[in-house]
């Protein structure tokens, strides 16, 4: 426990010293400030009388607008946006944790202590996840409070949607750790993780891709990749659906939640287990 605390503290200290924490908070604040400045709602007696987006008056039409539904629309749209922003920021902010640890002259200082390699690696992982988690809480929390301040309406589901974002971050961070252990390179970790993120998002349309392929083995390969990789596309959709309570989906596509969360979680667990295994076996 002492080791875990020392390592988590060090992750935060390092993030603060290397301006990662500042950049992390600054970028998140920028998104929040942009939202605060861009959206101006005129609510009179609980009803929406007018709305401006980036200073431009929105045409409300003759029909009265249901404020609750409008806020839900905002929250769901923003949760999808936050899903991408928070995940990207988290990968950038934590991808260095393993490569820096493995640097010559640094790793010796850590491994010469009476600490097992796996607990050392996992404590860095927990530190990184806490750092990313705090940012998700900040982003989602601040955005929710802003919505509440501007409209007087907010839905608890919007805050809970942060959990799906954190789940995705945890999975991708595990993969970044695996690449970091193997290559000792921050740049390669970031590139590989984003490659997985985008490839997996593209593969969420695997059925259409498979149908367009000429050979069965190519289709099987695509299907294989789809099942192995985390379901980043469906998870984004799941975040939006969860926040909206399934009320606002224009294209109702059934998501097999168990398969999406199960295979993504498995990908994360296997990545973390492999990184622990390789880290344990590595010669420094």
């Amino acid at each position: 426990m002492k080791v875990l605390a020392a390592n988590v503290e060090e992750v935060f200290r390092e993030a603060a010293a290397r301006w990662t924490l500042v950049a992390y908070a600054a970028l998140s604040t920028l998104f929040i400030a942009l939202f605060a400045a861009a959206v101006n709602l005129d609510v009179v007696d609980g009803a929406l009388a007018g709305a401006k987006l980036f200073g431009k008056q929105l045409e409300m039409g003759p029909r009265s607008v249901d404020l609750d539904k409008l806020v839900l629309g905002f929250e769901s749209g923003f949760s999808g946006f936050l899903y991408v922003v928070a995940t990207f920021l988290a990968v950038f902010a934590t991808a260095h944790l393993v490569p820096r640890l493995q640097e010559k002259g640094t790793i010796d200082l850590y491994l010469s202590r009476p600490v097992g390699r796996v607990p050392l690696l996992l404590s860095r992982y927990v530190g990184g996840l806490l750092l990313a988690g705090l940012n998700v809480v900040y982003l989602v929390g601040a955005m929710g409070l802003l919505i509440w301040w501007k409209t007087g309406v907010v839905h608890p589901r919007f805050f809970l949607g942060g959990a799906i974002i954190l789940f995705t971050i945890a999975t991708l961070m595990a993969f970044a750790f695996l690449v970091g252990v193997v290559t000792s390179s921050t740049a390669v970790s970031i590139m590989a993780t984003f490659a997985v993120f985008f490839l997996a998002a593209i593969l969420s349309g695997h059925r259409q891709i498979e149908a367009a392929l000429a050979t069965e083995w190519a289709a099987a390969l695509v299907r294989g990749f789809y099942w192995v990789l985390p379901k980043t596309g469906q998870l984004a959709q799941a975040t939006v659906d969860f926040v909206s309570g399934g009320q606002l989906s224009r294209h109702k596509v059934e998501i097999d939640y168990l398969a999406v969360f199960g295979t993504t979680g498995l990908f994360g667990l296997v990545s973390l287990a492999l990184s622990a295994l390789f880290f344990r076996r590595k010669d420094f």
């Binding site: 060090e10 200290r13 390092e14 010293a17 290397r18 640097e103 010559k104 002259g105 640094t106 200082l109």
Partner: peptide, 8 residues
């Protein structure tokens, strides 16, 4: 050639 974290 040890390298303590410079920020500490």
């Amino acid at each position: 050639g040890h390298r303590f974290p410079g920020y500490l």
